[in-house]
Design a protein around this nucleic acid. Sequence first.
DNA 1: AACACTGCCAACCGCCGGGAT
DNA 2: TATCCCGGCGGTTGGCAGTGT
Length: 217
Amino acid sequence: MKMEMNYEKMGKSRVSKEINRGAWTAEEDRKLAEVIAVHGPKKWKTVAAKAGLNRCGKSCRLRWLNYLRPNIKRGNITDQEEDLILRLHRLLGNRWSLIAGRLPGRTDNEIKNYWNSHLSKKLDPNQKPPRRAARKGGSRRPVEKETQLVESTRREVRDQRTPVTVAAATTSEGDEPSYPSFHCEADDDFFDFSNESALNWEWVSRFIEFNQLHHQA
DNA sequence: AACACTGCCAACCGCCGGGAT
DNA sequence: TATCCCGGCGGTTGGCAGTGT
């Protein structure tokens, strides 16, 4: 279902005299991949310069992470992946990069897109699509209630290492999400994602068991 | 056939945190 | 300590493809 990039059709948008914007060409992809193969995916400004790309470092990074990086999984999101996204979103909110870290081969951008176009509608069919929102440069990164709760909870867990109240957002049909609490014997490891590989499915299993347990309760 | 609308996805924008100086 | 710079992140948008009328 994934669209193959049509370089000719996409290449005409967002043109600037300063730096290249818009869709990447096959040639740009090739140059970027070559430089990263030699210097590694870091120092993006340098990478952009070495590749001779008239692109900003950010753009190179994004292109690499979302498209050129090895082990990117192409194709539809499976039912298992969708289920996992839903569960992780319930726990983490719009922390797409964290969610993506639990789905090997999937990018945060892909998951975010999938959420916005599929899952958000599933959860709330009456919701207006986010598309064409009347905003340009408005308030960015609003701190969501849910995210705040999760973050504070994670801090709490780290600090106290004791049984804590964990906020878990649940959404009932047509309602605003509610935030019931439940107790868990959580420890650092459970919430600390920093040292784990994306392929660590054990964590996922633990989370799902944990999640199911407390949904039954 | 022509037009309008919707779905989808790549890519951009601006904010923020952290490291470097 | 203050400032600057860069990378990471999430929100948003542009534009093509597909579908409906």
